[in-house]
Design a protein around this nucleic acid. Structure first.
Length: 261
DNA sequence: GGTACCTGGAT
DNA sequence: TATCCAGGTAC
């Protein structure tokens, strides 16, 4: 496991940029662009609440995507209830599009990308409660779009149409700890990508930014203002975890210092 | 082996 | 922009 200083990581990333097109080492995985860069750097996917490389986190993304950047994963409290798999998926989920095809006939899905400035079309919203120092998930049946009428009927039978009980939440302290240990400083690397005649995917890591000093208050404001999202990502067979995400061009807004190298 | 994380997507 | 979604690993 390679350990880098800020200086040596900058030099290594500049070397990789210099190399030009590099073959994807993780075919079939959307995360290949990041995993390939980790392989080049000689670092491992980090599954611990510690930073990737010394005190530095690495974020990689395609230049031509509009998809959100994932900041971190953190399951909501109360943790013991395993609320996503035990409540949200079975009581508020819907039939997965591939149920009976790619997945078993009963496969359910609960995928919601939600924020604090409006309700999703299924009635979910993020609430930042500064008094209780919690970020909460709220459900309002009256805000559900008519096109989800049938789903709403099923929710009524499964869970009733009141507020979530209990409401999933994250304590400010939990978020502060997570962000402080994982996201304090960040390299943002953007790559062009192309497929060759054989269908193989290649990346060219061409843009590198250094983001320093993460701000938790920026994250909370982002949730309130609607540019930070909480992304539930569960189906019956695999809960990919609950993520905090945002638009790439807003990532620098969460840091006090931004430099392009 | 299940859970909670990791790496990220397309339309 | 919002609503869907992918494979993989540590413990």
């Amino acid at each position: 496991m390679q350990i880098y200083t800020k200086k040596s990581l900058i030099e290594k990333l500049q070397e990789i940029r210099q190399k030009g097109w590099i073959l994807n080492t993780r075919p079939g995985n959307d995360g290949g662009i990041g995993n390939t860069l980790e392989d080049l750097l000689g670092i491992k996917e980090n599954n611990l609440p510690i930073p990737n490389a010394a005190e530095w986190e690495l974020k990689t993304q395609r230049l031509n995507t509009t998809s959100l950047v994932t900041l971190f994963h953190l399951e909501p409290s109360p943790r013991a209830l395993r609320i996503v798999s035990n409540i949200l998926l079975p009581k508020y989920g819907w039939r997965h599009k591939e149920a009976g095809r790619k997945y078993p006939i009963g496969e359910m899905s609960f995928r919601q990308t939600i924020s604090g400035d409006r309700r999703s079309d299924r009635g979910f919203k993020v609430v930042v409660d500064r008094n209780a120092k919690k970020v909460l998930i709220s459900f309002d049946a009256s805000a559900v779009d008519p096109r989800h009428k049938q789903w709403l009927q099923s929710v009524k039978q499964r869970a009733g149409l009141g507020e979530l009980d209990p409401q999933p939440y994250w304590g400010f302290n939990d978020l502060k700890h997570k962000a402080g240990t994982k996201l304090l400083n960040c390299f943002l690397v953007l790559a062009e990508c192309r497929r060759d005649e054989k269908g193989q995917l290649w990346f060219r890591y061409s843009k590198i930014y250094i983001l320093e000093s993460f701000s938790l208050d920026g994250l909370l404001k982002g949730l309130e203002e609607g540019f930070v999202f909480i992304d539930f990502d569960a189906r019956t067979g695999h809960n990919h975890g609950t993520k905090f995400r945002l638009r790439r061009n807003m990532l620098p807004c969460l840091y006090q210092k931004v430099t392009e190298i």
